[in-house]
Design a protein around this nucleic acid. Structure first.
Lengths: 119, 119
DNA sequence: CTCACGCGCTAGATTTACCCAACATCGCGC
DNA sequence: GCGCGATGTTGGGTAAATCTAGCGCGTGAG
């Protein structure tokens, strides 16, 4: 089939993404599950990539984590078709931000590059 | 038993929306179902609002109807709010960068926010 | 040390999405 | 009239998504 890969790998990385964002927000599974209106065991399975959550669950999790649903869908690989976001990367986004001064942009980009270099 | 509130009726209008778009494109159910990689009976159920299709199905249908997945999600009521002042450009890119660790993303976002706050 | 409590995870049951086969209905050519 | 091919729909099954109840582990207080 010439279509896009329907692999489950995208879902697994989505789970890791959710877990990292949850930990970044210092939320326990039960807390996030409560806010996102799902059960904690299910959240556990989702974070471990065992199930592909439906769209409303994704949206609820995204809102609970104070991120846009689109970000979540993009991470889940559900927004490929028409125009994939300007995926020109972090540096591009930094350069386009009008609220940053030139020095600030430079500093951010240098920090970013030091991070990705030490991958 | 459950509460039918925001969302319950959204799926029904979504079905009507899909049906109108399909008829507008002069496609039969079997044709659209074939392109969207679902079965014709299931498409029938969806158009009549009996089931809430999952995100990938929605994306495939949107694709088959030559519309963006976001439009479909919006019709499904899955994409409304994304609070937060919407200058997500830099933060969005940072969150999606797979080469950054969680801590690195956190650090970059904090630096970014301190910059724009101190403008 | 023990008890209580929060954490993430497993086990099993229930609900839901989705497919396949068969149905009824409406043309259209013979 | 009789097929017959195309349309939308229904019934019944299977696998996946989601829930509830409970487990085992760590940690802090008494």
């Amino acid at each position: 089939m010439s279509d896009e890969e329907k692999g489950g790998s995208a879902w697994r990385s989505l789970g890791e993404f959710i877990r990292s964002q949850r930990e970044l927000a210092n939320l326990s599974m039960r807390q996030l599950a409560e806010i996102a209106k799902i059960s904690n065991p299910y959240l556990s399975q989702v974070e471990r990539g065992m199930y592909k959550p439906s769209a409303d669950v994704l949206k609820n999790i995204a809102n609970a984590l104070h991120m846009s649903a689109e970000t979540m869908y993009a991470q889940a690989g559900l927004l490929d078709d028409s125009d994939e976001d300007s995926h020109h990367g972090v540096e591009h986004a930094i350069k386009l931000d009008p609220r940053l001064s030139v020095q600030q942009k430079d500093a951010l980009i240098r920090i970013y590059r030091s991070f990705v270099r030490n991958e």
